[in-house]
């Protein structure tokens, strides 16, 4: 199934969770946050939250700015 991750359509295995997506992105263990379909997914729910087909996942971190 497909989901849009940080603006790029990716093929994910059925049953993929938010935690799988973070692994795929090689995201650092701290300092990141995830939104699924416009709602924040708390860190504690990463490994139990399934990414639905067609889901929109945004993974953000802090960068230089402001």
């Amino acid at each position: 199934m497909n989901a849009r991750v940080n603006g790029v359509v990716r093929d994910l295995p059925d049953g993929a969770t938010v935690a799988h997506v973070l692994e795929l992105l090689n995201a650092p263990p701290s300092g990141v946050a995830v939104a699924l379909d416009g709602e924040v997914v708390p860190r504690a729910a990463w490994s139990s939250t399934l990414v639905p087909s067609g889901g929109v996942v945004e993974v953000l971190t802090a960068v230089q700015g402001g």
């Binding site: 603006g7 992105l25 090689n26 650092p28 990141v32 953000l60 971190t61 802090a62 960068v63 402001g66």
Partner: peptide, 26 residues
Amino acid sequence: TVAMRRVDSAGRTGVLDLLRRLGIGV
């Protein structure tokens, strides 16, 4: 201040590490 942006493939959090090391609030 720091800005929030998409994690890129490099997965950098350099600025956070720097602020933490200097003891500066984010």
